[in-house]
């Protein structure tokens, strides 16, 4: 793994301001740390955003708002999700292992780059 600096930020604005070239945000780490171990991702700096983003699920006028740092497990146990959108919980339960679901964030689950075969060639 390439050496990197590690910082934490308190809010999203500070995290975005600290972002430079070769900087990566890290949330659960289930994807990025794996990619870094395989030398696919080689960031020079990591910014831990676990404390910067919302980890709450709220009901809004139009539906439901899921914070980017809501762990996958919470999506499968939250009553608002289970009563209104049970398919979301079912879909999450169909993927990964309980340990991974405890770590992975919803934000990254929606936009991750899993270690596909193409990286290994």
């Amino acid at each position: 793994m390439r050496p990197f600096s590690f910082t934490k930020t308190e809010n999203a604005a500070k995290a975005v301001a600290a972002k430079k070239e070769l900087t990566q945000f890290v949330a659960g780490g289930t994807n990025l740390v794996d990619l870094m171990k395989k030398h696919i991702a080689q960031p020079e700096a990591l910014i831990d955003v676990t404390g910067s983003l919302s980890d709450k699920i709220e009901t809004t006028a139009n539906g439901i708002r899921i914070g980017a740092m809501v762990r996958n497990t919470l999506l499968t146990t939250d009553n608002q999700i289970l009563s209104k959108y049970p398919l979301v919980a079912k879909a999450v339960l169909a993927g990964a292992s309980p340990q991974i679901r405890n770590m992975a964030s919803t934000g990254v689950t929606c936009c991750n780059a899993p270690a596909a075969l193409i990286f290994m060639i």
């Binding site: 590690f6 890290v26 659960g28 780490g29 289930t30 740390v33 794996d34 990591l46 831990d48 676990t50 497990t73 309980p98 340990q99 991974i100 405890n102 770590m103």
Partner: peptide
């Protein structure tokens, strides 16, 4: 109290 994978957790986190 939650089970996680220590191999994918950076100690800094």
């Amino acid at each position: 109290g939650e089970r996680v994978l220590s191999c994918l957790t950076l100690s800094a986190q």
